[in-house]
Amino acid sequence: MNRVMALPLIIAILAAAAPLAAMGFEYWPGLAPCALCLWQRWPYWVAAGLALLALAAPPRWRAWLLGGVGLAIAVSAAIAALHVGVEQGWWPSPLPACLAPGVGAGTSVDDLLLNMAPLPTKPCDEPAYLFPGLPLSVAAMNLIYAALLTIWTLRQALRERRF
């Protein structure tokens, strides 16, 4: 397989690896995702799909599709940056699903049971740490990964335009 064909495949694999790893962390070591965690995954799937399209695209479209891949991954990086800010208390989450359910005076147990989410929820301002002792939350690790993958992918897209 030549470089032109291998590059989009490698980028597709790297893009799909992030949400697949995040799903794996749900099962081992049992990290519960919050709403912002779930939002960070979607741009990676878009990026992987665009990279696979670039694999089959004519050469004149390949650079544009790879540029789209880089932008999609940049969206995940932006969501991760927002998430890190929420975790650090720099700003509140814009998603209502990120808020922990409140218990007001006069709230009955029946009301609480009726208002429970069908799936377990985790507040977005509660960082999830994968490695004990490492001061990087999973959102911060995703921010670093997405930023590096964005830069590399956009550089590859610019390189493709030159050929």
Rank of each mutant, 00 (worst) to 15 (best):
L134Y: 08
L148G: 13
S108R: 07
G24T: 14
P135E: 15
L14P: 01
W90L: 13
C34A: 14
W152N: 12
T121I: 09
T150V: 12
V69M: 02
L20G: 04
P92H: 12
P29T: 01
L82S: 01
Y145P: 05
L130A: 07
I13C: 12
W91K: 06
Y27D: 06
S137Q: 03
L113V: 06
P135R: 15
P29C: 05
W91N: 02
L149Q: 06
L112G: 10
P19Y: 02
L20V: 03
A35I: 04
P101S: 13
P94R: 08
A72C: 09
P135T: 12
R41A: 13
Q156A: 15
L9D: 04
S76C: 07
L154P: 05
P101Y: 02
A77H: 10
T153L: 10
A35Q: 04
L7N: 09
L114R: 13
P29G: 01
A117M: 08
W152V: 15
D110Y: 06
P8E: 02
L20N: 09
V4T: 15
A32W: 04
A48M: 02
L66I: 07
W61F: 05
I79H: 00
A48L: 01
L148E: 08
C37Y: 06
G133W: 09
L95R: 04
I144S: 04
